[in-house]
Amino acid sequence: MSNMMSRVALAALATAFATEAMATEWNASLWGKRRAFTEHVEKLAELVAEKTNGEFTINVSYGGLSKNTENLDGISIGAFEMAQFCAGYHRDKNRAITVLELPFLGVENLDQEVAVSHAVYDHPAVAEEMAQWNAKMLMTSPMPQYNLVGTGEPRDELSEFEGMRVRATGGLGDAFAAVGAVPTSVTSSEAYQAMESGVVDTVAFAQHAHLSFGTINEADWWTANLNPGTVNCPVVVNIDAYEALSPEHREALDSSVPEAIDYYLANYGELLARWDTVLEEKGVNKVQISDETLAEFKSVADPIHAEWIETMSAQGMPAQELYDLVQKTLAEAKSGS
């Protein structure tokens, strides 16, 4: 009897160990608070848990694991398994994907942004560069074209950008600098304070960020159609952690990416649909930039594109190939092919 009980106890213990061994728990480092920009990560965690019956869980942290500008470093040392970052935070660490932050690329909507981002992420040069940080691209965080909020009189002519202190990173900062503005790359979390204290006159964000980080609450006006570009913010995973996943867990993760992106797009679409109501509620003037001013601003982009290709090529990157890939993918997305 005691032998039988011992065998039962040992079997139960072995089952418990096996169950524990099968369980996978990841930490994902984000920042700010839960918002439209993070909904695909939240959805991914939900889907992965569902598909694995709770055996694979992803804990989403908003700033508790790392500063947003240090998330790639955290991935490289395995401090956490998943993270979101923006290319403009450290352009020297992720040079290849900065092609997606060039101003006036011509991206018109979020579906096109997903298409060009994932095409670039799949390029071998991107995989090779990210591998230096022990990082594997998982998915993008598609954002609409950025627009400005500002205080005082609206700046709707290019001459009024001269000396304008603007929170803008990456290629957007380059574009504003080219027309005489003074870009600063304070993080998104610091943008409201920078605007409130007068460190910057204007802030360039996508709609969700103007809401989430409160800059819309300081604004007198918003440019409805400047659309100079956007930033690119991938979600990456630690390569060692990814390769250590069981085939079932890896399949659950990979197969959930398209579903998570679709959910993100639907959720963001709802925000865009009520944006005019938000502006009205907060008393923010909607400013339309003239076609002439837009054409003038866009004319500064070509030299910036050419300079990016030249600089990155000199550093051994297949810059022209990456740039052409963006243009080809964008053309295909627009034609529906």
Rank of each mutant, 00 (worst) to 15 (best):
V8C: 09
A11D: 07
L13M: 10
A14K: 05
A14N: 07
T15M: 14
S29E: 09
G32L: 10
F37Y: 14
K51Y: 04
N53A: 13
G54N: 05
S66A: 15
S66F: 12
K67F: 11
N68F: 12
L72T: 06
Q84F: 13
A96R: 03
T98A: 00
V107E: 03
E108Q: 15
E108M: 13
N109Q: 05
L110Q: 12
Q112R: 09
E113V: 12
V114E: 09
S117Y: 10
E128T: 11
Q132R: 15
Y146G: 05
L148I: 03
G152F: 09
D156G: 11
A168G: 03
G173D: 00
S185K: 01
S197E: 15
D201K: 07
Q207T: 07
A219D: 02
W221V: 01
T223F: 02
T230I: 09
P234A: 05
V236W: 07
V236L: 10
V237Q: 06
N238T: 01
I239K: 14
D240S: 10
S256A: 15
V257R: 01
I261A: 09
D262G: 07
D262N: 14
A266N: 10
Y268P: 03
G269S: 04
L272M: 13
W275H: 03
W275V: 05
G283H: 03
N285L: 13
S290H: 03
L294W: 06
A295K: 14
H305R: 10
I309W: 00
E310Q: 03
T311S: 04
S313G: 15
A319T: 01
Y323K: 02
T329R: 05
A333V: 04
S337E: 14
